[in-house]
């Protein structure tokens, strides 16, 4: 899919120069991040906010600045579209970002991320450096849901567990969950049976009150009891639990995704960006980051620095990992792009 999308025809050079000029103008007026562009001692990192940002600041950003003298500023929200637009326009808002398994294949095919080298053995996938694993788990309100749901089939069982439901508006994560609910075993999921997944989704559609689109939103609706059962990222779940909300979750049939650090193609901060990615995936900083945010560190060398106390909340811990399954984007079962489009039509119908 190396399509002409990103080579925008004849007027590009002019437009780019123009955009840079107008960006500089806007910078003066609006104090956008471009202001500091002249100073190459600043690196811009795309941030997920919430518990991710807290852990990243303490374990990755601040130590990196202490070691290299390069200041780190964060830009929100995480936006795949912005990553693509940056390369197209030549105006960079961030230099480094993290992508999940589905997005990184797309990003690499579209040529919007820089070629990288593996900083540790087996650490490189589609020009992203593997950082950490996170999971989409089933969670519920203990004040409204009576009994203990055990699997995604129970999520679909609105007779036994009545109440409002919520899932992420993200076809690539929702379809495997629907198949599990329909009785497919975790090891037989891929390639996905797309038709069967949509048929199963029809059953739950009327009960999904929110298709959440941002991590903070998922925590909020669970914590405030706007819904009673949810498919939620594990870090966001623990945020609600730690806030004292009456909630519970299961690691059973948890859906693991991997997150990768990538560098925006042709960014003017190339050297600092590459340095940061290497730093962020090296054993000690990654261990600190993963321990605090309860992600599973993907650099094996990091694991010896991860305290046992942090492991119970990690999807990759010896106790949790066997209960979970990993997303398999290389054997997914369809063009994720087309399936997403179909998913959107399905949502609105």
């Amino acid at each position: 899919m190396t399509d002409p999308k990103f080579k925008s025809g004849l007027i590009l050079p002019n437009r780019r120069r123009f955009l840079q000029g107008s960006a500089a103008l806007a910078a003066g007026a609006l104090a956008m991040p471009y202001v500091a562009r002249a100073d190459d001692k600043v690196l811009y990192v795309n941030s997920w906010g919430g518990p991710w940002l807290e852990a990243a600041k303490a374990n990755l950003f601040d130590p990196f600045t202490a070691e290299t003298g390069i200041e780190i500023r964060t830009v929100s929200p995480v936006s795949f579209a912005k990553l693509a637009a940056q390369v197209k326009t030549g105006v960079y808002e961030f230099d480094v970002t993290t992508l999940g398994g589905g997005d990184i294949v797309r990003a690499n095919e579209a040529g919007i991320i820089e070629d990288l080298e593996a900083p540790y053995e087996g650490g490189l996938f589609q020009n992203g450096v593997a950082s950490h694993a996170f999971a989409t788990v089933m969670a519920w309100r203990t004040d409204t849901i009576k009994g203990t749901p055990k699997s995604w089939a129970d999520f679909w069982d609105v007779e036994r567990f009545p109440g409002g439901r919520s899932l992420q508006r993200y076809a690539a994560r929702v379809l495997p969950i629907a198949l599990l609910a329909d009785g497919v075993a975790m090891e037989d999921l891929y390639p996905l049976d797309i038709e069967r997944a949509f048929a199963k989704l029809d059953e739950i559609k009327d009960h999904i009150r929110v298709w959440w689109t941002a991590g903070a939103q998922s925590t909020q609706i669970l914590r405030d009891g706007e819904i009673d059962m949810i498919g939620i990222w594990h870090g966001r779940y623990f945020e609600a639990e730690d806030a004292g909300a009456p909630v519970a979750m299961t690691w059973n049939q948890a859906e693991i995704d991997r997150a990768y650090w990538v560098v925006a193609k042709d960014t003017p901060n190339m050297e600092a960006a590459k340095l940061f990615v290497e730093f962020a995936t090296s054993a000690k900083p990654l261990a600190g980051f993963a321990s605090q945010a309860k992600y599973g560190a993907l650099n094996p060398a990091a694991n010896e620095f991860v305290p046992d106390s942090a492991k119970s909340r990690m999807p990759t811990s010896p106790a949790n990992y066997p209960l979970a399954f990993e997303q398999d984007m290389s054997n997914w079962g369809g063009d994720p792009h087309e399936v997403s489009a179909r998913f959107d039509e399905w949502l609105a119908s």
Partner: peptide
Amino acid sequence: SPREQMAAGLIGHQIEEFLAF
């Protein structure tokens, strides 16, 4: 409600999710 989307939301979604500029 997710079934009653408005145009601006869908435009944003097209660009964010599908890079369909």
